[in-house]
Design a protein around this nucleic acid. Sequence first.
RNA 1: GGAGUAGUACUCAAGAGGCUGAAGAGGCGCCCCUGCUAAGGGUGUAGGUCGGGCAACCGGCGCGAGAGUUCGAAUCUCUCCUACUCCGCCA
Length: 427
Amino acid sequence: MIDIKLIRENPELVKENIRKKFQDHKLPLVDEVKDLDYKFRIVKQEGDDLRALKNTKSDMIGKLMRDGNKDEAMRIKNEVSNFNHKIDELTKEEESLQQEIKKRMMLIPNIIDASVPIGKDDSENVEIKKYGEPSVPDYEIPYHADIIESLNGLDKVSAGRTSGNGFYYLMGDIARLSSAMLAYARDFMIDKGFTYCIPPFMIRSDVVTGVMSFEEMDAMMYKIEGEDLYLIGTSEHSMIGKFKDQIIKESDLPITLTSYSPCFRKEVGAHGIEERGIYRVHQFEKQEMIVLCKPEEAFKWYDKMWSYTVELFRNMDIPVRTLECCSGDLADLKVKSCDVEAWSPRRKDYFEVGSCSTLGDAQARRLGIRSKGDNGTYYVSTLNNTVLASTRALIALIENNYNSDGSINVPVSLQPYMGGIKVIKPK
RNA sequence: GGAGUAGUACUCAAGAGGCUGAAGAGGCGCCCCUGCUAAGGGUGUAGGUCGGGCAACCGGCGCGAGAGUUCGAAUCUCUCCUACUCCGCCA
């Protein structure tokens, strides 16, 4: 959510930004907000004046009652009763105007950074840099689910019975490998100075609607029946929610947290869940990082954050690249975002394993996350990035460390978390 | 899950229908004293948010959240949330 002052003072800039994101259908919203805001301020002024009048009259009644002048008090009482209806009307109008404004403000995209490449959709995202050699061995790399099954590491049939499509049992060394990666990712981030956090895995609806739109919520979140609770789709939800409506001491900034959580996703969107493998599933585990900082430090942290993910994957012998999201692919709340993608020697292409974003102050404005310093109160900048998502990282690790005999090399960095196991061999 | 008590600004806290946007204190600012610190004495100040104004300032809202009663609510009523104590249940 952008600052409404920007629309009052510089609507052209807001419109230009909408055009850059190829969302021309949203252009009328800007003038609509401008109009509604103008009306709102008139109605509010009128309402405030009447309320001020009511307050002084009510005070007079109090004084008259004390002086014993009942008749005059009664007369004023009636007078106030009369225009109280008018106040109610104006209040309702104020509220509905405010709602209309908010509805539109939620749809107007955040101002993207000047460095963001212009493009319509994900096909126009821009590769920034490759890290590690994207090599293809001279033997064939099987589909990840087949590899894991050959290592006795996956049971989707039973999971189908107990929970349905989109769930899985990870077994044995593969399950351990998944946990090892998460544990390594956790320690890696702790070493970078981030504070480890295990957040609530369920959150209330007011937090959910703070961090995503209604449509997103419907497409992603599982609701607990009979409770005002949702299973989190990522720990970012509870981590950012932690600061909802809070004023953070400026001396406490930056706040750098790394959180672990299972993630639950309905995945009802365009792609749906994956039938055979674990690429797109209803449940996985994730180590996440979030930063709350002063606005001027946001880009410094942005660069640090995505580079941590690159470093982590390189430490597990996985080639990666960074891909900058173009304007049209950038979610409305984001100022700038890039994906970290891992190399798939099977598909001979990269696939997404993480996403790093700076949201400027848009998310903070929506959730009321502020800081107070010498220059007054301001909305903080919020950033988030995947450290490691269990299933995606597992696929990347398995494909890139697969040997011709069907075994998997355990990267040196993970061996301490695997009880010293260096190679996982097929049955 | 049951029963009781409570929630007021950065913190503690007074407050029980109009004279309270909130006494008092801590804190904070300045001054004095003491070699530094701890402590002490004096003195001063603010409060969040929205709207209007170049500004000084003016007005609305605001006492956990929401709704209600009333001309008027921190104060009365209802619902919810949170914390504490007791009971029950349980990794």
